[in-house]
């Protein structure tokens, strides 16, 4: 079983992925693309093409953790939540240092280019697995919406949307090859008045660039919404259908 390590930052609302292999697997088997945020050494003077680490928002991490718990995906891999810590144990450090010193000497000798990527535990820090419970159980609105979006079809890609004036942009597949089809707005509560003006203007613009505005809404009381419910998209799983529902908004082209 392979492992995808997500390193959680000091505040826990984003995670970093440092392994290229993990990034590739997230992309191909989970439809999670993340955001490359590091400097690409080969082209260090631009921001279009960046390098690891890959940044993942907490709702995406929460979804991944739950998904792998449930044995979804191909079931072969585990997603671990880790935090790196400076190694305290002296002998361990020494072990590492000897190994490294040898490698270093070898590199110096040959005077060749060297790789600075290591295995997870070979540096002066080591990854400690965290209890992912709190994230796995995260019930914040954004987690609910994210999950509901992915439940429909896990190969959908939910990307950050601030550049487009949305919470998320939704791609039917890998953004490398397909356009975003939806702009997902921040969720409203079922009984909360819609911000008509803001909603309609973005819907109008979205329509003209062949996108749809998706408005998620969540119920205040999670049990109440079940009673009258015929209005839920059938493809949504039992898990989320009570909490999140979606309406799509498109400009008609007149008026």
């Amino acid at each position: 079983m392979s492992c995808i390590d997500i390193e959680i930052g000091p505040s826990g609302h984003v995670g970093h992925v440092h392994s290229l292999e993990a990034a590739r697997r997230l992309r191909t088997s989970h439809g999670v693309v993340g955001v490359l945020s590091g400097t690409l050494p080969a082209a260090a003077q631009q921001n279009c093409f960046l390098y690891l680490p890959l940044v993942l928002p907490h709702e995406e991490i929460a979804w991944l953790l739950r998904r792998c718990d449930d044995g979804d995906g191909d079931g072969k891999e585990k997603v671990r939540l880790v935090r790196r810590q400076v190694t305290e144990n002296g002998s361990q450090l020494q072990e590492v240092s000897r190994k490294q010193a040898v490698e270093q000497a070898r590199r110096d000798e040959k005077n060749i280019r060297f790789h600075m990527t290591y295995d997870n535990n070979s540096g002066i820090t080591h990854s400690k697995e965290l209890d992912p419970q709190y994230l796995r159980e995260c019930q914040c609105t954004r987690c609910e919406v994210y999950t509901a979006l992915k439940e429909g079809d896990a190969s959908r890609v939910v990307a950050a949307g601030s550049r487009f004036g949305a919470q998320y942009t939704l791609y039917p597949g890998d953004p490398l090859r397909v356009h975003a089809t939806m702009l997902v707005l921040p969720a409203v509560k079922n009984n909360q008045p819609w911000d008509v003006r803001a909603l309609l203007s973005i819907a109008r613009l979205a329509t003209t660039v062949r996108k749809t505005v998706l408005l998620p809404s969540t119920s205040d009381t999670k049990t109440r919404a079940t009673s009258d419910d015929t209005s839920i998209d059938r493809r949504q799983s039992h898990d989320t259908q009570n909490h999140v529902r979606f309406y799509r908004l498109e400009w008609t082209g007149f008026g």
Binding site: H18, R83, Q85, N120, G123, I124
Partner: peptide, 21 residues
């Protein structure tokens, strides 16, 4: 005294706060 090379991963773990990162 020995010197160890740090990985980028090591460095990211040195951030003190979310603000700093």
């Amino acid at each position: 005294t020995i010197e160890l090379q740090l990985s980028i991963q090591d460095l990211y773990s040195f951030f003190k706060s979310q603000d700093e990162s």
